[in-house]
Design a protein around this nucleic acid. Sequence first.
RNA 1: CGGGGCAUAGCGCAGCCUGGUAGCGCAUCUGGUUUGGGACCAGAGGGUCGCAAGUUCAAAUCUUGCUGCCCCGACCA
Length: 442
Amino acid sequence: MKLSNYFLPILKENPSEAKIKSHQLMLRAGMIRQSASGIYSWLPMGFKVLKNIEQIVREEQNKAGAIELLMPTIQSADIWKESGRYDDYGKEMLRISDRHERDLLYGPTNEELITQIFRDNIKSYKNLPLMLYHIQWKFRDEIRPRFGVMRCREFLMKDTYSFDVDKATAEFSYKKMFLSYLKTFQKFELNAIPMKAETGPIGGDLSHEFIILADTGESEVFLDKNLLDIDVNEVDYSEKNINEIIERFSKFYSATDEKHDVNEFENNVSKENQLRTKGIEIGHIFYFGDKYSKSMKALVNNKEGKNINPQMGSYGIGVSRLPAAIIEAKYNGTFMKWPKTVTPFKVAIINLGKNGDEADQKSNEIYQNLINANLDPILDDTSENPSSKFKNFDLIGIPYQIIIGSKLKKDEFEFKEIGEEKLILSKEEVINRLKEIYNIDK
RNA sequence: CGGGGCAUAGCGCAGCCUGGUAGCGCAUCUGGUUUGGGACCAGAGGGUCGCAAGUUCAAAUCUUGCUGCCCCGACCA
């Protein structure tokens, strides 16, 4: 993409309504624009980030054995009346009615709908276990939306729902998602710490929040530093590995301030491993048994030919919150550096030349080479001042830059990982290095 | 929903107190000079001053009502 053809409205100054750095950066870097309180449009740059995040979440769900489907944003009130939540949910639920004055609602979550789909189509234990998920927009009419996409009213969420014959298998489904979340967040270069959580209105007795550490987080968290060093990248979804990794995580202390136990923290965690910091919730998993399968009469035949209510769980990731969460974790106030899995473009070419000169020619040449190598580049071909280009790209946060000015010889390219020292490389070296970084076959 | 604040050009703001036909910086457009960390010169475009009513010869400015947005609190992925 050439910047001169792109839609990237950058702001030099912080809009006054943005109070936290992720909100400021997303506005300034032309990622989002507010349309109403807590409701945002995603501009091209932000949309690319969002889609990349969505894709990583999707891939890891698939690996964990969950199957994707898509449920609508608008739901009938009937199923919510069945489960009893039509009255319980309160004003957070956006209620609407159609021309026939039938009660509808903009879905704040999907337990009812997935249970309905399940009960209408699954009748046998042979189809279990089953994990279904979708990535869909939701609406919760928050009393006070704030912090940009961090706490908004319309948001994109990944929801998985698990169905099992008994509690033991349901717990295994829960553990699979537990691992899937750890792996997903590690791909965003985030340290997401699982913490025991309240089950809240969803109900049930087993629940974890996944919290990433960021100075600007909203809740205070306490944890054992050992939790930061557990690598799950190489762990697969075999039963043995899942149990092992979860055991490893549960060995170490972690709690949000609401659940914090000072004595346990002081006694069971060594002084040098005690970490007290701030966190942002980015995922939440629940096991809630037959709460919905019972109230909504979802039944399957078990081995003995008896009807039983399947055991269920639900597992959410705040997809549209993640760009902001990643920024909170990574933006230092001067520059942003997107994880390479998420970055809107894989590499930025900063052309400091002008029309037709050598730098300009070199820029266009390597731009074509990068496109051919599947290394999705953005080429700054505008006539802005160099300093202005540098500032803009510091803001946008594409992790790798190729800077091409008149300083260098014909076969020299300046390659820079944002925040690191620059290197002088040949064109081939630049391209090969990027292929290596992004794991693209030669 | 309680408490506080704001609403003037795309963004940041001044003007309001003391009423007299709307201004600054950035951004945008044209021409020129620049070009390695937010350039310079000259010119230009862009605002029914959130909406409605009232007071007045005259309202961005005073009064009332409404709407939107932001902040603190309770609530939440």
